[in-house]
Design a binder for these strands. Structure first.
Lengths: 162, 162
DNA sequence: TTCAAGTAGATGCAAACGCATGAACATCAG
DNA sequence: CTGATGTTCATGCGTTTGCATCTACTTGAA
């Protein structure tokens, strides 16, 4: 009898998790993270990919880190001169985060080495067709992202009429 | 012109990373982690899936955590009565980790609720065919796991002959 | 304008993590 | 048997994380 759709989904998710953990461990073991930790690189990469100035909460979408942790990570990167934080003229609460020249350079250097390892690992495991499939599947999974509003989103109902 | 194989691999990996982050955030936001953190659940789940007694370093293969961190996480789980650690009679260095009845029960309870969220998210994003593809791809990615030995594994070459 | 509600980011603090290292045991060549 | 080497897990310690909370600012309705 065929697996239920729910079972199928859970098996697929577990498979993704396992692959993620295995590859992350493998990449983490590579000797290229001496100037930038993987998380720091993740932030710099996200900033580099995104045109230029970026809000902290935007960054948070892509990085698996709590808002305070991300805030402090950016602190450290700024202290090291890799990221520039400027107040956002359009929103007094917000920041405009951008790579400095040094930051961009370091991201490129580490990124280049990392890409080699990624290509080696993924190419060894998958066919071109599978890589294309994975890319498409990942995109679809990430797209349903905004998460379901917690329970039925009440239409701003106030207290009971007093 | 077609993307290079290396580019293809990196795009696929980035897609996987993005999907992983998005879904993890979404699952983490669910109100089911009051008795067990996601990492703790991960450990209990791994123990539950694996027949019974498990070595710490085996656990480490599946969990994205350093060995000391895992060691202490298991400490806490043992203190809470969810995991049992016994010395391994076959290897004086090792441990035999197993779920207690309470641990298994808690894993089932949380796991049941979590599976619902996983199924909802994945089913909404993928077709049956895609879920099967993802499972297969993940398996292949995780299989190439043992990582290439750092550089050419020298055959235990000693110093230059003196 | 005024004020309630919402949002962006920072901060205090305890918990958890990673790195380096240590202790105990296993393994194997000589 | 003995000593060198490798493996498994634990521990010290400084750093980083998450949770709860705070401040500053924006938004929108009255």
């Amino acid at each position: 009898m065929p697996r239920s759709r729910s079972r199928l989904a859970n098996d697929a998710w577990e498979s993704l998790l396992t692959a993620h953990a295995a590859l992350m461990k493998r990449f983490a073991a590579e000797p290229i993270w001496d100037e930038l930790s993987m998380r720091e690189y993740d932030v710099l990469y996200t900033l580099a990919k995104h045109g230029e100035p970026m809000r902290l909460y935007e960054l948070g979408r892509g990085v698996l880190l709590s808002q305070p942790a991300l805030s402090r990570l950016v602190d450290r990167l700024a202290e090291r001169g890799l990221v520039e934080r400027a107040p956002d003229p359009a929103d007094g609460r917000g920041l405009r985060l951008a790579l400095t020249e040094t930051g961009r350079e370091q991201q490129r250097r580490v990124g280049g080495r990392h890409a080699v390892d990624v290509a080696r690992a993924v190419n060894a495991a998958l066919t071109d067709e599978e890589m294309r499939q994975l890319e498409a599947i990942g995109r679809k999974l990430a797209a349903c992202d905004p998460a379901p509003p917690p329970q039925t989103r009440r239409p701003n109902r106030q207290e009971a009429p007093r």
